[in-house]
Design a protein around this nucleic acid. Structure first.
Lengths: 410, 410
DNA sequence: TTTCAATAGTTCCGCATCAGAATAAATTGC
DNA sequence: GCAATTTATTCTGATGCGGAACTATTGAAA
């Protein structure tokens, strides 16, 4: 039930008449499954080790609410088959027998995660734990699906050099259906593009597509800062404002997810207008372009987002005013999220995350404004502005499917 | 594991020296457990029948993702023991053998649900499905816990006349811990009151306490409008604005739940000030007292909430302005909830719900204002303004605990 | 009318899975 | 060295499940 038997690949490359993917043809690949098939009962054990390893049997048993005996029973065949390994003992000076730690051979499988932007594809190769091994970005020349698929395939080929890729995950800031169809990605002018199938056919590698925020949130859930939480929220800053939510141990999505539902969230009734005519919405207050433009306007000369933040950091009055307004707006968004979803953690990330570092005080002020003083504010974790982080999220789409044995055939 | 053996009741009635609860002493009660103990595997079947009955075995099997054979196996001992009954056949003209419907004998057990307000206790007796059989309200004379507990016990006694009560659930608009302690209920001046234990001791009936919104949301989840949804939100209107959320099939709570986190949600940047100084917050825009006051101020004479709504319905300009502002504010709150939690349904209820009927257009306008036009708005269900509805929620606390065998001892 | 397809429900077998008891192993602290 | 503590293993008996083969009951087509 858990194995996916990949159908013999048909080399039906409809997007590239030059056979530039020759190396795929007939190449022997490691199968896109575990070295040993976990059973229904041992799969959660394997996942727990993958997500939290190295970890002891006793710790897994506690976490999965199983008896110690069951853990021995369930882990034995996984160790036997090479899926798990004992990686040493550990003892923190506590009384009792030391733990024997289990881990997955996380570098035995490889995945590629990509993020599609308007003019750029960011791609990275990761191991089973979503850790980045190599990465590369390319500019998108022609936005036509066929041409983008060709570039994606080329990137996957290049990143996979010397290693077989078990799956590709692609994150897009748009509306995606069934982890396969790009229903609507305005910035590319796409609609109803069966991207997963197209890339799968072009590369011979199982491929999944989803909204970039969904992917990023799944990464944080499985391997990132939200790993230990039952409820957490993700807010990303940058060209747009993104939001992801995990509640009751699973991501919260719906059919509208991907439209960008918090993009025009009202943050500042006295703020500037966005292109759509909303006063002080997230787009007008928080987006990096808006911040750069408002600072530029105040200064009378053109600065970009990073320069605007540099100025704010240096104490420039105009830059501080704009960024602190943004910080307060971010705080109010955080407060709203906390009031409605009671998260145990807030993760702020994205290319524009530096804002949150610089105007942390204004952010706290904004939180306090819309938050009951008796309420406790959960830990707020700030990520890096590294663009490649999006790729880890995208890769996790493929990793999760690989682990669950639900990678699509190609 | 599923049975709760009630310890022999100690008649330690510390709140009433007159032995007015004599009938409890030594009275033989039906035990606070099912007539037959469901096993780990059959409990979900029993719950499914309780929540959705009458229902066929095949339908339960589909819903619980079990085989038809398993349903026969699991339902047989429950039928044998009298927990379930066959209640007739059913056939909608479809081809195939007619279904044989199962149901629980829902009137075999009784529960009491109560809502504590500042000056009033609302109480109702329900059956196993939370359907109200009788109800009664009393004014609170003395707000001291001991005196309120005495009134609660008296009410339970009266409502239970002629039927043994299997559990009591109490809903309070405040911060509750462990379904037992009233950590903070400002309107009563209580803090750290072990209410569940006190009522349990005074009545001899297992008692649970929780936030009224949690209780109400659980009711909608088990028996109400949210029964078929994996995600839905509850918004209540009245003296305060309440919010409850179910995501991924379970209620979303946290330690701050009960403070009233949406009470000062910003709805209208040009709105009136609330007592705490927030401009256009939910308290100032939506609360029934605020609406009544703002209409009164405009008219120059005192009207109450219902009169204000009557005037709005009749087309009075001032009343319409105030109520439509409120409707738009409600719409913006709904939009915010939809944008963050992507519910499949919005349930609006509470004593003040009539507002939503009267200014439905303004509400829709408010939703549209903060909602991406491409996004679909989920069904919005309006409840009744019946105060007794709160009691069904409170009763569900006891019903759920009864069903899971986790009613506390007394 | 007969036959067929569809749906509901039962019985039974074999496999998967679990908790708990008994046991062993490896440590700290006394 | 000994007790207490924690980890891990090896059993056994019980529970729970799907799936196959079967019966039951209907509507629709032949």
């Amino acid at each position: 039930m858990l194995n996916v038997t990949l159908s013999k690949r048909e080399t039906k490359n409809i997007f590239c008449d030059k056979n530039i993917y020759a190396c795929h043809d007939g190449a022997v690949k490691s199968p896109s499954t575990w070295s040993v098939a976990p059973t229904n009962a041992s799969l959660p054990v394997a996942i727990e080790v993958l997500r939290r390893g190295p970890i002891s049997r006793a710790a897994i048993a506690r976490r999965l609410q199983l008896s110690a005996g069951s853990l021995t029973r369930l882990s034995a065949p996984l160790l036997e088959g090479g899926l798990l390994r004992e990686v040493g003992e550990h003892n923190d000076g506590r009384v009792g027998r030391p733990t024997r730690l289990l881990d997955v051979d996380i570098d035995s499988k490889h995945f590629v995660g990509m993020k599609l932007r308007e003019h750029e594809i960011i791609a990275a190769r990761t191991n089973l734990r979503g850790e980045i091994q190599r990465h590369k970005s390319v500019s998108i020349g022609d936005q036509k699906p066929a041409e983008v698929v060709r570039q994606i395939a080329e990137l996957a080929e290049e990143l996979g050099a010397g290693a077989s890729i078990n799956g590709i995950g692609i994150g897009i800031g748009g509306l995606i259906r069934d982890r396969e169809y790009v229903v609507d990605a305005t910035f590319l002018g796409w609609s109803e593009v069966p991207l997963a199938k197209l890339v799968g056919e072009a590369t011979g590698i199982p491929t999944l597509v989803d909204n970039d925020l969904v992917a990023f949130t799944e990464y944080e859930h499985w391997f990132g800062e939200g790993r230990d939480d039952d409820r957490f929220a993700v807010i990303t800053l940058g060209a747009g404002t993104g939001f992801g939510l995990v509640a009751n141990g699973a991501i919260v999505t719906g059919e509208d997810y991907g439209i960008g539902l918090v993009g025009h969230w009202p943050l500042d009734p006295a703020g500037p207008l966005c292109f759509a005519g909303h006063r002080g919405c997230a787009t007008s207050v928080l987006n990096s372009d808006s911040i750069a433009r408002h600072v530029s306007d105040a200064l009378g000369h053109r600065v970009d987002y990073e320069q605007a933040l540099d100025l704010a950091e240096a104490g420039d009055a105009a830059a501080r005013r704009v960024t602190e307004d943004a910080g307060r707006g971010l705080g109010r968004l955080i407060a709203a999220v906390c009031n409605l979803t009671l998260p145990q953690r807030i993760i702020i990330a994205g290319e524009g995350v530096r804002l949150a570092y610089i105007v942390a005080d204004a952010m706290r002020e904004g939180i306090a404004k819309d938050r009951d003083p008796r309420a406790s504010t959960p830990p707020i974790v700030l990520g890096t502005k590294n663009n490649v982080d999006w790729c880890r999220g995208a890769a996790v789409l493929a990793i999760q499917a690989f682990v669950h044995g639900t990678l699509p055939g190609v």
